[in-house]
Design a protein around this nucleic acid. Structure first.
Lengths: 106, 106
DNA sequence: CGTATAAATGAACGAAAATTCATATTTGGC
DNA sequence: GCCAAATATGAATTTTCGTTCATTTATACG
């Protein structure tokens, strides 16, 4: 069994590495979606209109970066922003190395 | 002659695109270096200990993303953060779509 | 002018990341 | 136990990105 929580593989340690996780249209959309609260995968999927498997890969990417975390909820899985980023409010995301304040509209 | 200032090609328009420009060890170092003031290419080069051509490519990337801009100064070229990001202070970088507050130490 | 210095460019290549597809895992209900 | 729903995983492929190298442009100076 690997490291049970997050940050197992990939580049979650450097600031550039964590930014890389956000530097993607899809993943950024996921994060911004989760900023309004926890969400099931299915909801995210229909919200973004993206293929199931692709979304799953992106979610793993975000998990590996320590940006989101998943918990089972019945046969669904609930995603939310990591406790590290709990300091978020009003669209502020805390990456540990830097804080990103998103403007209201994209 | 292409568009003279910045944002000619590449992904300078989307937030993810601009984040992508920052999501690189080298380019992030350049930006953080420029946050303390305008700088010649040569200085940046010796500061980062990186090959000339490689730095130049990264600088073009940052230029295309609208994050830095260049002005000639004799045979050297002076780089600085874009006016868009002028609202920066104390390590705050304004990407237009979001603001990034860097922690003092990396 | 010729030359040296500073920086930019373009092509080529390898490495990493994104996407797709097929398959596996987990869970709840019958 | 078996089936369907929800999500994850892995391999294969394509796309994008970073790096190197060789060459070019721009400027100053003698």
């Amino acid at each position: 069994m690997k490291t049970p929580d997050s940050s197992s593989r990939s580049n979650a340690d450097s600031c550039a590495g964590r930014l890389k996780a956000l530097a993607d249209e899809t993943r950024l959309a996921v994060v911004r979606h989760l900023m309004s609260g926890p969400c099931h995968v299915g909801e995210i999927q229909t919200a973004l209109g993206i293929e199931q498997s692709l979304l799953s890969h992106h979610l793993r990417n975000l998990r590996d970066a320590g940006i989101v975390e998943a918990t089972r909820d019945g046969k669904a899985v609930l995603y939310q922003l990591t406790p590290t980023m709990k300091r978020r409010r009003d669209g502020i995301v805390d990456l540990g190395c830097c804080r990103i304040t998103f403007d209201p509209e994209s």
